[in-house]
Design a protein around this nucleic acid. Structure first.
Lengths: 339, 339
DNA sequence: ATTGGCACTCGGTCGGTGAGAGTGCTGGAG
DNA sequence: CTCCAGCACTCTCACCGACCGAGTGCCAAT
């Protein structure tokens, strides 16, 4: 009983099941895949695969279906990378480069993933924590209020209102703005706290409180969990391919709306620079136990990613295709991102 | 045959059907609603209502179900306003006031609508066209590029990159910034074009092209359809109450993802200051023929709205409750919005 | 090790039946 | 003229039993 062929059988089962959405039996298997052996032989292999927990049969007299473990083996060892076609790559490139600002980039990336993979797309906005500061702006709004605008080098813009005790004239504000930007130039946002506190020390008494207040606002904005924003697209795809969910769409849709949990999952599973796949019950989130998540980091071209993008679909998905699409979009996204 | 009672019967049918999700027959009707007449009499009324196209029966031997037309009559004449409870109002108020910026306000409003109504929430970001300018910012990014940041009085921030032929020093940039803001102060964004072109005339030759370029960027940003952004939340609610869709969730989810079409529908149906309801086939969008849309404008407290918020659920929805929730959120939203 | 043959299991489908719900109609009472 | 009780009729749904086919596991033969 050759070990080699057993894996071929597993691959054939996965590919067939992904395509037809129906449990696959020994006869069909030998007909559609040139295995060179008879159904009976395949049955022996299938029994072994089932023994190993890689496939299962829904009913006594139905064909076999891959288990999560089976998909895992398939993804890790059996799947052949299937690069995108040239036109596809070009389409991604042009579509992304037409974006007018960061929101647009993220939205377009989501659309691309949703369309290419046929699943739900999740795109995290570039994380504030891992971004650098491009510019800090103070805008007077009268009534002793100042609008603090933070622009990151990934193009993200955050704004906060700030109540200041004194009314500031334009000149002073301009001066402060210049100092802030000088102090912060090129630093990571997380380093800003210390930079600003040393700045405060060098300021005249009257403005010290303002500087401290601004520093607090900025660091507070960073500290908030809520600042990690994500975009969801393509839920309609779930309904399309989704009649296959045993539990129905509800738990999936509900899980997707738990943004904090979802983001936690994505962050946890995304490792260094590659594409990560989490299959079925490997996802700790309850509602996603019938789905697989494919993620990749994106961001600066020098390796360390500033955010995550991913595709979420039924465990019965086209893994090679999905992985290729996610990787491609992540790659071009990193290239297009300002900074 | 009293006209009055016939409407009572319609109301009873609507209320019962909304609650139980099951076609309602004459017997049940007399048991649950004190109509003071016998089932036989109700049957006569029902026959008349069916003749008038207000109700229909799915099968020969099933109870009656309201038609779109029936819901319409119910909403227009029969529904009693049911104001929110005080705790609910207070919850809305505090939840909205905790928002840190515009994105957050919109996100929270969406959550509120989704949770209060149990349907899908759609919130349009304050429209650029109808907003005023609070501040225009020019940020140098080196390499002969300038980042143009537009901050509206509704708190929305838009940004565009602009290639400029000359490299600008900080002082010149500050000067330009001051002039722009002086020229634009307090105007509607749509009036900016003329304001800037007259500004360009008064500028020295060397900066005239830059001014024109900035003006173009700003007006271009306004002209884009894509700039009308919307937020969708609560799709999971569709799955919850959504087993009642004859055609399944797919067409609904797909329609919701056609943002341009969806926004067109909302804009079209929203009239002056009140709450508007569009029922079933009244929606021109194909996928929404089994849903009802409840919208309200929100924005400046002086009546003219700057954006739309709405709740989309099955035609079999609790109209009074949904309308009350949408109106309440729109009202508080208008109050909370900066400006 | 592979294969053909065979008995066995079990899910899905089809046709028929009975119960129940709801209706429309008719004729009579207030 | 309005209302109502009774009745015959229709149609859906749930249930039942039988059948068919797909697929399996095992065994003996090559």
């Amino acid at each position: 009983m050759s070990e080699r062929r057993r894996l071929d059988v597993l691959r054939a089962i996965v590919e067939d099941y992904v395509r037809t959405r129906e449990p696959v039996g020994s006869r069909i298997l030998t007909e559609r895949h040139k295995l060179g052996v008879s159904p009976a032989t395949v049955r022996n292999d299938m029994a072994a695969l089932e023994e190993a927990g890689l496939i299962a049969q829904p009913h006594t007299s139905a064909g076999r279906v891959p288990t999560d473990k089976g998909y895992r083996l398939f993804v890790d060892q059996l799947a052949e990378v299937r690069p995108l076609t040239v036109p596809q790559k070009r389409a991604i490139e042009t579509f992304l480069s037409e974006a007018v600002d960061l929101d647009d980039v993220v939205a377009r990336a989501g659309r691309l993933i949703a369309q290419l993979t046929g699943h739900v797309a999740v795109v995290q906005y570039p994380s504030l924590r891992r971004s650098g500061l491009r510019h800090l702006e103070l805008v007077p709004t009268g009534e002793g209020r100042v609008l603090v605008v933070v622009i990151t080098d990934t193009g993200r813009v955050e704004q906060r209102f700030l109540d200041v005790p004194v009314t500031l004239d334009d000149w002073t504000l301009g001066e402060l703005r210049a100092r802030f930007n000088a102090a912060a130039a090129g630093r990571r946002l997380t380093e800003l706290g210390s930079a600003f506190s040393s700045l405060a020390d060098s300021m005249p008494e009257e403005h010290r409180t303002l500087v401290t207040a601004v520093a607090e606002v900025v660091t507070a904005a960073l500290g908030e969990e809520s600042e990690e924003r994500i975009l969801l697209t393509g839920q309609a795809n779930l309904a399309r391919s989704g009649m296959g969910f045993e539990q129905g769409l509800r738990p999936v849709l509900e899980a997707l709306e738990e943004q904090v949990v979802l983001l936690g999952l994505l962050t946890e599973m995304t490792d260094e620079a590659g594409v990560a796949v989490s299959i079925g019950h490997e996802n700790r989130v309850a509602g996603l136990s019938e789905t697989s998540v494919v993620t990749a980091g994106y961001g600066s071209s020098d390796g360390d990613s500033v955010a995550i993008l991913s595709s979420i679909g039924p465990t019965r998905m086209d893994y090679p295709g999905t992985i290729a699409a996610v990787r491609a979009v992540a790659r071009y996204l990193s290239r297009v991102l300002p900074g």
